[in-house]
Simulated assay, not measured.
Amino acid sequence: MSRRLFPRSSRRAAKLAKEIGAFAQAHGGAEGQLAYIGHEGTRIVLVGEDGGWGDLVAPTYAVAQSAVEKAGITVHEDFDGEFAAKVETGPYEWTRMAGIQVGGPKNK
């Protein structure tokens, strides 16, 4: 259900929708999930059909919701199960996770 946004928010949603569309085009399609991150806004997590992933941050949940609706992507309630399994990680992610989580090598 789309909500009416103020002009500035509507422009931000349109810009985010364009970025989501570009991501989807570069990755053979995309799905997403919205994650509220407090006063910073809402993270739009994107997963491409090829396993590529990325994220964008919208200033509010309403702007994020409008952006994904305009982009026409499927949005999941949670980042789990089959959706999470679509993400492909490489050496960079594993090195970074190890460096942050268990004292592994740090990224340069």
Rank of each mutant, 00 (worst) to 15 (best):
A85P: 00
P91D: 04
T89H: 11
V57I: 15
S10E: 07
A26T: 14
T74G: 01
A30R: 03
G103E: 08
F79R: 08
V68T: 13
E31T: 12
G54K: 06
A35K: 14
P7K: 15
S9Y: 03
H76P: 01
H27E: 07
T42S: 01
H27S: 05
I37G: 00
G72L: 10
Q33S: 10
A22W: 12
P105I: 14
R96M: 13
G72H: 10
I44P: 02
P105R: 13
G104Y: 03
M97P: 00
S66R: 11
R8D: 06
K106Q: 11
D78F: 09
F83I: 09
I73L: 06
G103A: 05
Q101I: 13
A22Q: 12
I20L: 08
A71W: 08
G51I: 10
E69R: 14
V87I: 14
R8F: 06
V45H: 02
H27C: 06
Y36K: 14
G32H: 10
V68H: 07
K70T: 01
A71F: 05
A62T: 04
R3G: 01
G54P: 00
L5Y: 03
R3W: 05
E49Q: 09
A30Y: 09
R8W: 04
S2W: 02
R96L: 02
M97R: 10
G28A: 11
P7D: 06
W94I: 11
E40G: 02
D55N: 05
A67C: 02
E77M: 14
A13R: 12
D55F: 11
Y61E: 14
K15Y: 06
D80T: 15
W94H: 13
A67M: 03
G29W: 03
K108Y: 04
A22D: 02
R43V: 15
K15Q: 07
E93K: 07
V45Y: 10
A67G: 03
E19A: 07
E40C: 02
R11Q: 07
F79V: 06
E40T: 10
V47L: 11
F83K: 10
K108P: 00
Q101G: 03
A67V: 11
G51E: 10
Y61R: 14
I100G: 00
E93V: 08
L16C: 03
L56F: 08
A22V: 04
D55Q: 12
R43T: 09
R96T: 03
H39C: 08
Q65W: 05
K86C: 04
A62S: 06
I37M: 14
A35P: 01
T95M: 07
R43S: 05
T60Y: 06
F6S: 11
G41T: 08
E49N: 10
I73R: 06
G51N: 02
G21D: 08
K15R: 14
E19K: 15
A67K: 13
K108F: 08
A58N: 04
E40K: 14
G29D: 05
N107L: 13
L56Y: 04
Y61D: 02
H27G: 01
